[in-house]
Deep mutational scan, measured.
Amino acid sequence: GAPPLPPYSAGGREVTMKKGDILTLLNSTNKDWWKVEVNDRQGFVPAAYVKKLDSGTGKELVLALYDYQEK
């Protein structure tokens, strides 16, 4: 199953993602919540729920390892 959710501390809205989604990583300075862009929406997802990909394009991409439903 998915890892436990860290307390929400990102101070911005969250976004929903599905397992297998490829998201653009915008900011990973917060260790628990990373800012991503998905379907032209920006928001935060739990860092433990995604994995960085080596895209080779200069853009940082992450793979959704679990479904996440915004609150």
Score class of each variant (00 low, 15 high):
Gly1Ile: 07
Gly1Gln: 14
Gly1Phe: 09
Gly1Ser: 15
Gly1Lys: 10
Ala2Gly: 11
Ala2Gln: 10
Ala2Arg: 11
Ala2Asn: 11
Ala2His: 12
Ala2Trp: 07
Pro3Arg: 05
Pro3Phe: 06
Pro3His: 05
Pro3Trp: 05
Pro3Ser: 06
Pro4His: 08
Pro4Gln: 12
Pro4Asn: 09
Pro4Ile: 09
Pro4Asp: 11
Leu5His: 06
Leu5Cys: 06
Leu5Lys: 09
Pro6Met: 02
Pro6Cys: 04
Pro6Glu: 03
Pro6Thr: 02
Pro7Tyr: 06
Pro7Phe: 08
Tyr8Thr: 15
Tyr8Leu: 11
Tyr8Val: 09
Tyr8Glu: 10
Tyr8Ile: 13
Tyr8His: 15
Ser9Ile: 11
Ser9Asp: 10
Ser9Gly: 15
Ser9Met: 07
Ala10Ser: 14
Ala10Leu: 13
Ala10Gln: 09
Ala10Lys: 04
Ala10Asp: 06
Ala10Val: 10
Ala10Gly: 11
Ala10Phe: 08
Ala10Trp: 06
Gly11Leu: 11
Gly11Trp: 04
Gly11Asp: 15
Gly12Ala: 06
Gly12Thr: 07
Gly12Cys: 07
Gly12Pro: 07
Gly12Phe: 10
Gly12Ile: 08
Gly12Glu: 05
Gly12Arg: 07
Arg13Leu: 15
Arg13Ala: 15
Arg13Lys: 14
Arg13Tyr: 11
Arg13Gly: 15
Arg13Cys: 10
Arg13Phe: 14
Glu14Val: 11
Glu14Ile: 15
Glu14Thr: 15
Glu14Ala: 12
Glu14Leu: 09
Glu14Ser: 14
Glu14Arg: 07
Val15Ile: 15
Val15Tyr: 05
Val15Thr: 07
Val15Met: 14
Val15Lys: 02
Thr16His: 09
Thr16Asn: 12
Thr16Gly: 15
Thr16Arg: 09
Thr16Val: 05
Met17Tyr: 03
Met17Glu: 01
Met17Cys: 05
Met17Pro: 00
Met17Leu: 07
Met17Ala: 04
Lys18Thr: 08
Lys18Ile: 09
Lys18Tyr: 12
Lys18Ala: 08
Lys18His: 12
Lys18Gln: 09
Lys18Leu: 09
Lys18Ser: 09
Lys19Gly: 04
Lys19Ser: 07
Lys19Glu: 06
Lys19Pro: 03
Lys19Ile: 06
Gly20Val: 00
Gly20Ser: 02
Gly20Trp: 05
Asp21Arg: 02
Asp21Cys: 04
Asp21Trp: 12
Asp21Ile: 03
Ile22Phe: 05
Ile22Val: 09
Ile22Pro: 01
Leu23Asn: 01
Leu23Ser: 02
Leu23His: 03
Leu23Asp: 00
Leu23Arg: 01
Leu23Pro: 01
Leu23Phe: 10
Thr24Val: 12
Thr24Arg: 12
Thr24Trp: 12
Thr24Ser: 14
Leu25Gln: 01
Leu25Pro: 01
Leu25Val: 07
Leu26Cys: 05
Leu26Thr: 04
Leu26Ala: 03
Asn27Ser: 13
Asn27Lys: 06
Ser28Gly: 11
Ser28Asn: 08
Ser28Lys: 10
Thr29Pro: 02
Thr29Ser: 14
Thr29Ile: 10
Thr29Trp: 08
Asn30Phe: 05
Asn30Lys: 05
Asn30Met: 07
Asn30Pro: 04
Asn30Glu: 07
Lys31Cys: 06
Lys31Thr: 10
Lys31Glu: 08
Lys31Leu: 12
Asp32Val: 06
Asp32Ile: 08
Asp32Pro: 01
Asp32Trp: 13
Asp32Thr: 06
Trp33Cys: 03
Trp33Lys: 01
Trp33Asn: 00
Trp33Tyr: 04
Trp33Gln: 01
Trp33His: 01
Trp33Asp: 00
Trp34Asp: 00
Trp34Phe: 06
Trp34Gln: 01
Lys35Ile: 14
Lys35Tyr: 15
Lys35Asn: 06
Lys35Phe: 15
Val36Phe: 00
Val36Gln: 00
Val36Glu: 01
Val36Trp: 00
Glu37Met: 10
Glu37Thr: 13
Glu37Leu: 09
Glu37Asn: 06
Asn39Gly: 15
Asn39Gln: 11
Asn39Tyr: 13
Asn39Met: 14
Asn39Asp: 15
Asp40Pro: 03
Asp40Gln: 12
Asp40Met: 08
Asp40Glu: 12
Arg41Pro: 00
Arg41Phe: 10
Arg41Lys: 13
Arg41Ala: 10
Gln42Trp: 13
Gln42Ile: 15
Gln42His: 09
Gln42Asn: 08
Gln42Gly: 06
Gln42Pro: 05
Gly43His: 03
Gly43Cys: 04
Gly43Tyr: 09
Gly43Met: 06
Phe44Cys: 07
Phe44Tyr: 15
Phe44Asp: 02
Phe44Leu: 06
Phe44Arg: 02
Val45Gln: 00
Val45Ser: 00
Val45Leu: 02
Val45Pro: 01
Val45Cys: 04
Pro46Glu: 00
Ala47Leu: 01
Ala47Ile: 02
Ala47Lys: 04
Ala47Arg: 07
Ala48Phe: 04
Tyr49Leu: 06
Tyr49Val: 02
Tyr49Met: 05
Tyr49Ala: 05
Tyr49Arg: 03
Val50His: 00
Val50Phe: 05
Val50Glu: 00
Val50Gln: 00
Val50Arg: 00
Val50Leu: 09
Val50Ile: 07
Val50Ala: 03
Val50Asn: 00
Lys51Gln: 14
Lys51Glu: 13
Lys51Val: 13
Lys52His: 09
Lys52Gly: 05
Lys52Gln: 08
Lys52Ala: 08
Lys52Arg: 14
Lys52Thr: 08
Leu53Gly: 02
Leu53Trp: 08
Leu53Lys: 04
Asp54Ser: 13
Asp54His: 13
Asp54Cys: 07
Asp54Tyr: 15
Asp54Glu: 13
Ser55Arg: 09
Ser55Pro: 10
Ser55Lys: 11
Ser55Val: 15
Ser55Ile: 13
Ser55Thr: 14
Gly56Val: 13
Gly56Pro: 15
Gly56Ile: 14
Thr57Lys: 06
Thr57Asn: 14
Thr57Trp: 12
Thr57Tyr: 12
Thr57Phe: 15
Thr57Gln: 14
Thr57Gly: 15
Gly58Gln: 09
Gly58Pro: 11
Gly58Thr: 12
Gly58Asp: 12
Gly58Trp: 08
Gly58Phe: 09
Gly58Ala: 10
Lys59Val: 15
Lys59Ala: 13
Lys59Thr: 13
Lys59Gln: 12
Lys59Ile: 15
Lys59Phe: 11
Lys59Cys: 08
Glu60Cys: 08
Glu60Asn: 12
Glu60Phe: 11
Glu60Tyr: 09
Glu60Lys: 10
Leu61Asp: 04
Leu61Asn: 05
Leu61Thr: 10
Val62Arg: 00
Val62Lys: 00
Val62Phe: 05
Val62Thr: 02
Val62Asp: 00
Val62Ala: 10
Leu63Lys: 07
Leu63His: 03
Leu63Gln: 12
Leu63Tyr: 08
Ala64Trp: 01
Ala64Ser: 05
Leu65Gln: 04
Leu65Phe: 03
Leu65Glu: 04
Leu65Met: 10
Tyr66Arg: 05
Tyr66Cys: 04
Tyr66Ser: 03
Tyr66Phe: 15
Tyr66Asn: 04
Tyr66Pro: 00
Tyr66Val: 04
Tyr66His: 07
Tyr66Asp: 03
Tyr66Glu: 04
Asp67Val: 02
Asp67Gly: 04
Asp67Glu: 05
Asp67Phe: 03
Tyr68Trp: 08
Tyr68Phe: 15
Tyr68Thr: 02
Tyr68Val: 02
Tyr68Ala: 01
Tyr68Pro: 00
Tyr68Ser: 03
Gln69Ile: 12
Gln69Cys: 08
Gln69Arg: 09
Glu70Ala: 14
Glu70Arg: 08
Glu70Asp: 10
Glu70Gln: 08
Glu70Asn: 12
Glu70Val: 12
Lys71Glu: 09
Lys71Thr: 15
Lys71Arg: 14
Lys71Trp: 10
Lys71Cys: 08
Lys71Asn: 14
